[in-house]
Design a protein around this nucleic acid. Structure first.
Length: 848
RNA sequence: GCCGAGGUGGCGGAACGGCAGACGCGGCGGACUUAAACUCCGCUGCCCGCAAGGGCGUCAGGGUUCGAAUCCCUGCCUCGGCACCA
């Protein structure tokens, strides 16, 4: 016994997919001709990966919809460039090296090999010719070259300051320290502070420019995060002076930054950070022991303890006073760890009446709290302040502030600043939260920083001709996590490029975020060995038209990349000042437990088994179908069968339009009351309406509804399978559109079915991925009648099938005659009739 | 504490201020099969009702509107970011 369905060839992705992947590769289908000017360029970039050695579901979640976008853009006529590469320097390679006594390079390259294979199984249209691997000297020598340019331009410098120190990763940039508990972004270890001489990049020079997102289309939340991270505050710098005292001559300038110069009369004490350079000088002999003890304690404490806002405020007085420039008052100077050395000037004027932190401190130590700003509404009802009053609207006016009394706060901010400026005691100033980017890392597996230390000449940058500074091939970890370069004499010993005398190499390597800050430029000319970037190609192809990746890099990679582009532009290397024209942040796929996927949690999901069972096309489609792409969510493969069924049904429609299912009682019959002509119309209308909607969904990255609409079309065609219209021109047109619409998302099965169509028609084979995106036939998409919902007082009471294009009066006549409407009106006359949304709905309003 | 994104059936999720729950999973019923799996067809928000039908429904409470999941206000909850930044 055979049934209809067992006769057709089964959809077997395992047989189809590798075959087409190989064919595409042989044909070089996705090799982009960067010099082709006949089509508009479209640079499609997705964040490159760290070669951890295994591709998990998260990688698929980012890459396969991005690939669909690329394929869609190709069909729309763009010359699409979609490269891949590996962000291959970094700590995990070293950890593996220490643990397994294997060279980080071997470990890394082996992983890259595995991941290349896994990436190919996606069937994505990557241009492998452009591959970049950052741990390759052919790449990292240009990190060094760029570093030298930045050094020349004053954008790189070395400085000693307290830095964030992770026991595993060594120093960290500020962006790389996360959470209340101050842990390392990568390994999660608690971070401490150390005083070290380190290399920095001057990102703060671009603070204002980085706040300007003009000309780029980035998601609002990312722009807000970057804006907050940069943290621009406008205010004034005010000069206080130390007051003469028995131990002090007085007159030392103590500069403070404040956003509230209008509260200057309320400054009743000053606070310096414990690290402030004037602490030593200002401290009175009597206070010296307690001050020194406090400074030592602050130094010892971790940042976690210092930054804990729940904790009671601590601090000690220096035993010296300062003079308030506006009123000549002497106010005591304290040190306290709530004042940070790294922000503003590292010193504040404390206005306890109008700053919550100063208020808490004043309460703690019994210092004077003076009210200098008061809402107009409370005049005549003066109460002592219960908490700091921080507002500064036009209804908040100055009191106890000499000649500024009665002035509104916003105006007073300007007036007080102008007054200070006139007397040389201050000026308008801007302060930023953003710090310069600390790029030194005490690690082996990174780009060596190309400078040497000469006893005679000091810090000497290498000449371009001396690049690259190669990592030594042998690496001895000596069983510890310490930087092996620091005790590798063969590496260390060198000669000074300036005087020829003995010198020692810098042993710090660069933060791996340096690598990822310009890699997309290198994709355009990965083999070029005379320059880091090919200016002509960069000018034609950048900024990147569309970038995709996770939002977790909002203030790291995505900010550094913007900085690098601007810095490179200022060095004359590139023309554009923004790297990525459009950015889309897809959501994160979490483990089944709802937590972030990680090896340590053991909740990492590999798609391999699913790919083996269902094929890459089904996995791709399922990931797109799960939900909105920017949402992500916990991983659950429970719905994948539905997507697999959908592709199977499409397969069946394509190969066996005339077949029927024995289990279907109505199989082979047109819907009741429909003839062949009507059925053909309905099929064409559905196909073209689907095309219209699917096109909009691809444009808007709404892949979940895109898939849903294709499912609807397949469901509809399935109802006509085996009927007299199956296989006729309308049906065939719908099938053609279906395959074209599905091609970007499910490239293998559509290629297979397309090839069979062409073969059946006796036509020569061409790839479906070289086809153009079809045009909507508006006439075909139009429908003659529609179901009109009828509301009475906003509640749906009836639905009427009406011809499209009736006048309002005709619709009203029709609708008011309906028994259900009559019943709902209960004899009352309509008060108003609203025809909403161009005839989409009627609402009859009755009163009483 | 501040900033951002959310809260819709048993589940993932649809819905230009206009038919809430598209599409899929799961569930129920049926067909096909010796049987099962596969496949196909139908039903499936909750409550009342034999039915026709009716009522209630988008975190909670208010408001705007002929009409609110959608806009506004208040509150609660979840997730992400920042966190003594003067």
């Amino acid at each position: 016994m055979t049934t209809e369905r067992t006769r057709i060839e089964r959809y077997d992705p395992a047989a189809i997919e590798p075959r087409w992947q190989q064919r595409w590769e042989e044909l070089g289908l996705y090799r982009t001709d960067l010099f082709d000017t006949t089509r508009p360029p479209f640079y499609l970039l997705t964040m490159y990966d760290y070669p951890s050695g295994n591709l998990h579901v998260g990688h698929w979640y980012v890459k396969t919809p991005t690939d669909a976008v690329g394929r869609y853009r190709r069909m729309r006529g763009n010359n699409v460039f979609f490269p891949v590469g590996f962000d291959s320097f970094g700590l995990p390679a070293e950890n593996a090296a220490i643990k397994n006594r294997i060279h980080p390079a071997d470990w890394t390259w082996r992983n890259i090999e595995t991941m290349r294979r896994q990436l190919r199984s996606m069937g994505a249209s990557f241009d492998w010719n452009a591959e970049v691997v950052t741990c390759d000297p052919a790449y990292y020598r240009w990190n060094q070259w760029l570093f030298l340019r930045f050094l020349e331009a004053g954008l790189a410098y070395r400085a000693t300051s307290p830095v964030d120190w992770c026991p595993n990763d060594g120093t960290l940039a500020r962006e790389q320290v996360e959470g209340v508990d101050r842990h390392c972004w990568r390994c999660g270890a608690k971070v401490e502070k150390r005083d070290l001489a380190q290399w920095y990049l001057r990102i703060t020079k671009y603070a204002d420019e980085l706040l300007d997102f003009g000309g780029i289309e980035w998601p609002e939340p990312i722009r807000i995060m970057q804006t907050n991270w940069i943290g621009r505050s406008e205010g004034a710098e005010v000069v206080f002076r130390s007051a003469p005292d028995t131990h002090l001559e007085g007159g030392d300038e103590i500069r403070v930054f404040t956003t509230r110069p209008d509260t200057l009369f309320g400054a009743t004490f000053m606070v310096l950070a414990p690290e402030h350079p004037l602490v030593e000088r200002l401290t009175s002999p009597g206070q010296r022991p307690v001050v020194e003890a406090y400074v030592a304690q602050a130094r010892r404490e971790t940042e976690i303890e210092r930054l804990n806002t729940e904790r009671d405020k601590t601090g000690v007085p220096l035993g010296a006073d300062a003079v308030n420039p506006v009123n000549g008052e002497r106010i005591p100077i304290w040190i306290a760890d709530y004042v940070l050395s790294g922000y503003g000037t590292g010193a504040i004027m404390a206005v306890p009446g109008h700053d919550e932190r100063d208020f808490a401190f004043a309460r703690q130590f019994g210092l004077e709290i003076r009210e200098v700003i008061r809402p107009v509404a409370t005049f005549g009802d003066e109460q002592p302040l219960e908490s700091a009053y921080v507002f500064k609207t036009a209804d908040d006016v100055l009191v106890n502030s000499g000649r500024y009394n009665g002035m509104a706060a916003p105006e007073a901010i300007r007036a007080v600043t102008a007054g200070l400026e006139a007397r040389g005691e201050g000026k308008a100033a801007v302060s930023y939260r953003l710090r310069d980017w600390l790029v030194s890392r005490q690690r082996y597996w990174g780009t060596p920083i190309p400078v040497v230390y000469c006893d005679d000449c000091g810090i000497v940058p290498l000449a371009d001709a001396d690049l690259p500074v190669l990592l030594p091939a042998t690496v001895d970890y000596a069983g510890s996590g310490e930087n092996p370069l620091a005790h590798d004499e063969a590496f260390l010993r060198t000669t000074c490029p300036r005087c020829g005398g003995p010198a020692r190499r810098e042993t710090d390597t660069m933060d791996t975020f340096m690598d990822s800050s310009w890699y997309w430029f290198r994709y355009l000319s990965p083999g070029k060995d005379s320059e880091p970037v090919d200016r002509a190609l960069v000018d034609r192809w950048t900024p990147v038209a569309q970038y995709t990746g996770g939002a977790e890099h909002a203030v790291m990679h995505l900010l550094y990349s913007r900085f690098f582009t601007k810095a490179m532009a200022d060095c004359g290397l590139v023309g554009e000042r923004e790297p990525f024209k459009r950015l889309f942040n897809q959501g994160q796929v979490l483990g089944a437990d709802g937590e972030r996927m990680s090896k340590s949690r053991g909740n990492v999901e590999d798609p391999d088994a699913l790919v083996a069972q269902y094929g890459a096309d089904t996995v791709r489609l399922f990931l797109m179908f799960m939900g909105p792409w920017d949402q992500g969510g916990p991983w659950s493969p429970s719905g994948i069968g539905g997507v697999a069924r959908f592709l199977n049904r499409a397969w069946t429609l394509a190969l066996d339009p005339h077949g029927t299912e024995p289990g279907d009682a109505t199989a082979g019959q047109l819907p009741p009351g429909e003839d062949a002509a009507a059925a053909g119309k309905a099929i064409r209308a559905a196909a073209h309406r689907t095309l219209e909607a699917v096109t909009a969904d691809y444009e808007g990255f709404r892949f979940n509804t895109m898939v849903a609409k294709l499912m609807e079309l397949v469901n509809l065609l399935f109802r006509y399978r085996g009927t007299e219209v199956a296989g006729d021109p309308a049906w065939d047109e719908a099938m053609r559109l279906l395959l074209l619409m599905l091609a970007p998302a499910a490239p293998h099965v559509t290629e297979e079915l397309w090839a069979r169509r062409l073969a059946a028609a006796g036509a020569q084979w061409t790839s479906i991925h070289r086809e153009s995106w079809p045009e909507v036939d508006a006439a075909a998409a139009a429908v003659a009648t529609r179901e009109l919902p009828v509301q009475v007082n906003g509640k749906v009471r009836d639905r009427v099938e009406v011809a499209v294009g009736l006048s309002d009066a005709e619709v009203e006549a029709l609708v008011l005659a309906r028994p259900k409407v009559v019943a709902a009106l209960a004899g009352k006359a309509p008060d108003r009739i609203i025809h909403a949304g161009g005839g989409r709905l009627v609402n009859i309003v009755v009163r009483g």
